[in-house]
């Protein structure tokens, strides 16, 4: 048991190392990962400015821009990574190793977290500075708790998705790509989700991103009208439930998909 834990911890560090080293050796990521997403945030902020929207909406866009970084890290640098690594030939080496698949995924996510955190911080700091966003934080502690619980739920969702990427490769990649804009839309990345109507917003709450963003906005802009979906405490409870459920489902799905892949022979089949 102790040996297994030790091996899994080593696996997390081993897989994270690639990303950490990559960030140091190829500094071009600073341009790709920071400058370009920042410009996208600028574009949406300028749309609001062009429409003479309240300044708070520009704040929403900046905060969303930072959160997008985490979401993209989970979806593309972790979940979809199983697809790429299958194509490279790494996946089968992970699968024959005596470690949990979740440890490998966690390694990818943790390794990417460094770059993601820098990207998110840059968007938040530079975006706030350029557009003069004013934050009014109600409770820092609550903000941190909500942020990390949202991350926990999102990583659970990402691991769940990775089981699909593991087996369905290219098809899963296309599906994830397909849902990029719909996810941005229904989770209210660029506007308060309640604007979609309570029914749609509640349905969108199945995505932890929706609740997380709404709660974080409420906590960051507590002084003004943010058109909240639910009270922060309720959202936090729902996020905790989502975190537990998604992580449990991910564990089950990874085991199930791996077994299904072994039965059908798709697990190591490339170029699908």
């Amino acid at each position: 048991m102790k040996t297994d834990l030790n091996t899994n911890l080593r696996a997390i560090w081993g897989r994270a190392y690639v990303r950490v080293v990559g960030a140091n050796r190829e500094l071009s990521w600073l341009f790709f990962e920071v400058t370009l997403p920042l410009l996208a945030v600028f574009a949406f902020a300028l749309i609001y400015r062009g429409l003479h929207a309240p300044e708070q909406y520009i704040g929403f866009v900046v905060v969303s821009g930072a959160m997008v970084a985490f979401w993209q890290n989970i979806l593309w640098a972790m979940a979809a990574q199983f697809y790429w690594e299958k194509e490279m030939g790494n996946l089968e080496l992970y699968l024959i190793a005596p470690v949990s698949r979740m440890a490998i995924l966690l390694g990818m996510a943790v390794g990417g977290l460094f770059m993601t955190a820098i990207r998110a911080a840059a968007i938040l700091i530079i975006g706030s500075w350029i557009f003069g966003v004013h934050y009014d934080v109600g409770s820092w502690l609550m903000l941190l708790v909500v942020f990390w619980v949202t991350m926990g739920a999102l990583y659970g969702l990402g691991m769940l998705s990775s089981s699909l990427f593991m087996l369905y490769g290219r098809e899963a990649w296309h599906t994830a790509n397909l849902f990029q804009e719909p996810v941005y839309f229904i989770s209210g990345f660029y506007f308060p989700v309640r604007s979609l109507g309570s029914g749609v917003a509640m349905a969108a709450s199945l995505l932890p991103l929706t609740l997380g963003l709404d709660a974080i906005r409420q906590l960051l802009f507590s002084g003004g009208p943010v058109n909240p979906l639910l009270p922060v405490r309720t959202e936090l409870v729902l996020l905790v439930i989502a975190m537990v459920l998604f992580n449990w489902a991910a564990l089950k799905a990874l085991t199930y998909m791996e077994r299904l892949g072994k039965m059908t022979g798709r697990l190591t089949l490339k170029s699908q």
Binding site: T7, G14, R15, P98
Partner: peptide, 17 residues
């Protein structure tokens, strides 16, 4: 992006070496 030594080390981590 990894060196030969790093690659060998990384995969060995999956075996707890």
């Amino acid at each position: 992006i990894l060196t030969v030594r790093e690659t060998i080390w990384m995969f060995a981590q999956f075996y707890g070496v």
